[in-house]
Design a protein around this nucleic acid. Sequence first.
DNA 1: ATTATTAATCGTAATATTGCAATGTAATAA
DNA 2: TTATTACATTGCAATATTACGATTAATAAT
Lengths: 110, 110
Amino acid sequence: MGLTKTEIFTDQQNKIALYSKVFGHPARVAILQYLFKINTCVCGDLVNVIQLAQPTISQHLKELRSLGLIKGNVEGTSVCYCINLEEWTQMKETMFQFLNQDNTKKEGCC
Amino acid sequence: MGLTKTEIFTDQQNKIALYSKVFGHPARVAILQYLFKINTCVCGDLVNVIQLAQPTISQHLKELRSLGLIKGNVEGTSVCYCINLEEWTQMKETMFQFLNQDNTKKEGCC
DNA sequence: ATTATTAATCGTAATATTGCAATGTAATAA
DNA sequence: TTATTACATTGCAATATTACGATTAATAAT
C-alpha cells in the first residue's frame, strides 16, 4: 500500500524515523555539512557547491526547514540559511538515545 | 527522475545517507530496539510484537541484514536474529561524526 | 510419507521520493 | 518602468518504498 503505518509505533520511534529520513539523502547531508563548515550564513551558493539544479536544492532545503533543523532569513533578494542549533541539539539527544542502545547490552548472542 | 545522484557526493555522505535511510522507517527502528531489549536471539516473535504482516517484517529484516546491522542464524525452522555489534559500533562512529559537527562550530549566525 | 510450522520470495497495488524545466514572485538595479 | 537577480512553487516523469496475499522452500512432527 506504500503507506507507512505510523499509528502502530511510539512517538519516539516515529521521531527517530523522521529525523533519519531527512538524513537519508546525501544532498541533505551535504547541505548540512556545508552550513556547519562555513560557520556563517550562506545565501545562494549551495546551488554552485552541490551539483543539483536550483529547484532540487530548494526542495531539500524546504524539508530541512520543515523539520526545524535549519532557519532561513530573507535578506534582500537572497536568503540566508543556517543551522538551528537548538533543534539540532534536541535531535542529537533523540538520536543518541537510539544509537547508544548497545551501551546497556550486556552480551551478544549469535 | 526519482534516482538519487550518488556520484556527486562523497563516500562518507553516501554512507551516512544509507544508514539513515534504513533508520528512516519506524518498523526498522522498532525491530532494532526489540533486538537490543531482549538481549538474546529472537526468532519469529517479531511478527507478534509488531503489528505488520510476516512478509513485511521479513522485508525490513532483509534491509537491516543487507547493511550488516543484524545477523540471522537458521535454527531448524526458525531464524535467530540479533544485532551485529561490530557493525553497529562502526555505524555509530560514522553517524557521530556527522551529528557532532556542531562541536566545532564557534558561533551561530541567524 | 504426510502434515504442520517458519520464514523467504514473488507479484502487485498504493504511495512517496527525486530531479528538473517552466513558471511565479519579490526585491533590487538600471 | 523595466530588467535582473535570487529563490520558491508547480507540474511531471522516472524510480523507490511500503505493505500484503499467495506461493515456495526447508525443516519438524506425526
